[in-house]
């Protein structure tokens, strides 16, 4: 079959909402785009464990400690599903780690911001997990089967995280003056970076058209960002707090909230590695990987020894076995 035919059949499947599975033919660009996107997503889950992990030992109550531990553990699980999904496209987890550690692969820039108060655990749950859900719910209908299925499981847990985060903020908002202060402060710091999580504006997002054609993406960055603003602008009222945007205003005509300009200079700087925690986050991952090398070697060496012993045992017993006719 010639390539034109393959392309046509592939696109036909996509148009009919038939999932593409690992063994199916797919254009190289489709494969590459997915590997990049899924591995980036996996790295984000794993790097994302660090800013929240930062507060596990300092959680203010045993209940909050248990919830936070479970949350960070969920994120590790998300990383695992996503690495597995990416592996179905013909890349190994070690190769993906390699790309992360060398700086070649990116992860979500939001995790390059510091968590400096307990309220940040609330703001991350509400805004960061919230933005992730906005992005990911459409991905659970993505054309690539393994990615879509991973997203279904992940989204269920993310909505838990979002509710738990909001509940942390709600408790703070009803608390003492000092608690209300850290609550507002956390919202102020996490709001704009959360809006940046949807990526550059559609004009600056050259891959969007192709990704939409392939149904990897279902909505544009700006559409999702608007949806997120509309939801948060209402939710923040329950907290009795404000979003740090003087231009935020309901637009009756558009039936959406208008909002102020995003600082894209900051966005691109954080992407390029100049965010407040880029160096720390990456260094921490690299260190964990390097410190763990001897552990992985030992596990491997032990498995090999075990396999050899099993082989010898089988071979010895082979001689005493009766031939089976």
């Amino acid at each position: 079959m010639d390539t034109t035919m393959l392309f046509a059949q592939f696109q036909k499947k996509i148009d009919q909402d038939i999932k593409i599975e690992p063994q199916d033919w797919m254009p190289d660009e489709y494969r590459k785009t997915l590997i990049r996107q899924i591995s980036q997503h996996a790295h984000s889950e794993v790097v994302g464990m660090l800013p929240e992990g930062n507060w596990i030992t300092r959680a203010p109550s045993l209940r909050r400690k248990a919830i936070l531990l479970a949350k960070v553990q969920d994120e590790a699980g998300h990383g695992l599903y996503l690495y597995s999904a990416a592996e179905t496209l013909g890349i190994t987890r070690d190769e993906m780690y390699q790309q992360l550690h060398s700086g070649k692969a990116k992860y979500s820039s939001i995790f390059n911001y510091p968590t400096i108060s307990w309220a940040d655990m609330g703001a991350i749950g509400w805004l960061v997990d919230g933005a992730a859900i906005m992005n990911q719910v459409p991905l659970s209908r993505c054309s690539y089967g393994p990615y879509a299925r991973a997203m279904v499981r992940i989204c269920k847990e993310e909505s838990f995280h979002q509710r738990q985060g909001f509940e942390i903020l709600l408790t703070l908002s009803k608390g003492t003056k000092a608690q209300r202060k850290i609550c507002q402060d956390a919202i102020n710091r996490w709001w704009w970076p959360s809006l940046m999580m949807f990526g550059p504006t559609d004009n600056d997002s050259p891959h969007t058209a192709q990704s939409m054609l392939w149904k990897i993406k279902r909505f544009t960055n700006d559409e999702l960002r608007q949806k997120f603003v509309d939801v948060c602008a209402e939710q923040v009222k329950f907290l009795g707090m404000t979003l740090p945007d003087k231009d935020l205003k309901w637009n009756e005509e558009r039936q959406h909230y208008d909002f102020g300009p995003i600082n894209w200079e900051e966005f691109w700087n954080v992407v390029k590695g100049n965010g407040p925690c880029n160096k720390e986050r990456l260094a921490t991952r690299v260190q964990a990987w390097e410190d763990g090398a001897w552990v992985r070697d030992a596990a491997l060496a032990y498995e090999e020894k075990k396999a050899v012993r099993q082989y010898r045992y089988d071979a010895e017993n082979e001689n005493t076995k009766m031939p089976v006719s």
Partner: peptide, 24 residues
């Protein structure tokens, strides 16, 4: 829980965090 996010293997990081949760 101090290991959380710093384990040598992602699966083992998850297992150890789970144990931390049991302890708590």
């Amino acid at each position: 829980s101090e290991w959380c996010g710093h384990g040598p293997i992602l699966e083992q990081d998850i297992a150890l965090t789970n144990i931390a949760l049991d302890f708590v």
